[in-house]
Amino acid sequence: MIGVISYLVFFSTVAAILAIAVLGLNLQWGNTGLFNGGVVAFFGAGAYATLIFGGTPQEGQLGGFALPYPLALLGGMFVAGVMAWIVGILTLRLRHDYLAIATFGVAVAFENLMRNAEALAGGAQGLRGFERPLFDALGGGLAYNSLFLICVLVLLLAVYVFLERLIRSPFGRLLRAIREDETAARSLGKNPARIRLTSFITGSVIMGMSGGLYGTFYAFISPQDVLPILTFQIWAMLIVGGAGNNRGAVAGAFLIWGAWTASGWALSRFAPQEVQLYTGSVQFILIGFVIVGMLLWRPQGLFEEKLVVSQQGRTATKELQGDRR
């Protein structure tokens, strides 16, 4: 029984951490229509930076500043935000798919840098030497993990409330206005590129927080944790939950993470020995089908609510419709 509860606490912690990242993505994609192809880079930046700022000094390695934990986490969020600022300023005034390509590139380059830069990030072995806050005081175990889960849930709720208020604020109305009719918004004296940049950075900072918590939970981060598949998982969570819908995003995170762990468990339990190596491939195909299938058959997500995105196609799409008739 304790085993089941421990596992549930463990599962919920990871799912809740990922849900925070999904909420960050929802601000970018669901509310602003920005395509972030490298969620994992901002997540990873938060994780690595939190561990570098908050970790104990290690030989031959940068960091180990041993900052108080809240400062370390804020530092992680800050680094993710700076990265988003650089990418955003370069791409947000261009054709919208440049952002997709550039963010995808950031993720590739980030993983590459973490894998190779031993002095900065510990290279392929990852970052160690981080002590979880209050771990000693509470003596670890289920009590600690439960407390950690509560903290994560509080932060998840805080982010949720923050975003709900944000999209109902004048800023949120601007986001919608720009998404629906950029020219009109511009003619009202608003600068769409700037507003999109703000939204992109805010979303990425939230992803950085998620990454920071993830790194804290495991007290370890390595290049294996920042592979592109995480980006796809977070997307699948959002698209299943329904873009533009924060409650759906959180539900999607728990649902997809549940499906992912369950499918992994089932494959390792029931699949024959010789196909065990291909467990990952099967799971990736499943995620791929979830993304494509949702787009084709239920683009509004499983939990439809108000505020559904209307990603209107322009130009060629319209012309193609003429041809299709």
């Binding site: 798919d97 698209i239 791929g288 993304i291 787009l295």
Partner: peptide, 17 residues
């Protein structure tokens, strides 16, 4: 169904599959 960015999304899914 409309939406150029949905196409980008779909292309990631197709690539993975």
């Amino acid at each position: 169904l409309g939406g150029e960015l949905s196409m980008v999304f779909a292309s990631f899914g197709v690539a993975m599959i």
